[in-house]
Amino acid sequence: MENQSVIALNALDHGRCRPWPFLQDFCLTCGICAGACPASGVDGFDPRKLVRMISLGMEDETVSERWPWICTMCGKCANLCPMEIDIPGLVQKIRSRRRREEVPGILHKGLEAALETGNNLRLPKDDYVFILEDVAEEIAAEPGFEGFTVPIDKTGARILTTIHNKLVNTHTEDLKHWWKIFHAAGEDWTVPSENWEGTNWGYFTGDDAAMKTMTSRIAGHMERLEIDTLLWPE
């Protein structure tokens, strides 16, 4: 499973990644990152291994492997690393070096859809609003939730929340957990009608420009609707 080919140090340019700002050269090889990582050992992923490969200048090989895409970017490694190495930053950088056609799975396709339509599924606005209102009706039919409605694009609300695409696709029931809590708490909340996508696959695929676009849209909603607090569960 793991790559077993011989590493020829003579053929490597160890200085290649040295200018990167992630402090990877200070690694003590202590392994605390891998000890904390929920994905270490899965399909060949190992944060300590990644740090060392970059330190040795093995950029090409790392970019071409699949295992750097296993990382969930949870950040436990960086939180613990005694040398303050920014491992998630390293992961992002490696991912950004890969050609977009070679980004694994649906990550880039979903991102393209989101950049073009405001959500990973290319779900039209009307369909989206219909689904939200449909779920709201079901909630309103339950005892204690009479009169429940879903506030969309409400100016001046206290909280803006985003929506993960699966919640308007295969897991619509899960919307109810959020919304019932808001209702019971008497919260003043709202969701956007467009560019509502809660995931940011620009972040996951190391596509900084796309990540910025997705984030700016959410920030734009906050400005437009005059809302100070963002609840971004993704």
Binding site: Q4, V6, I7
Partner: peptide, 12 residues
Amino acid sequence: PDEVLRRPSVLN
């Protein structure tokens, strides 16, 4: 054997 990469390595 590089213990971090778990791969044989060679240097001249």
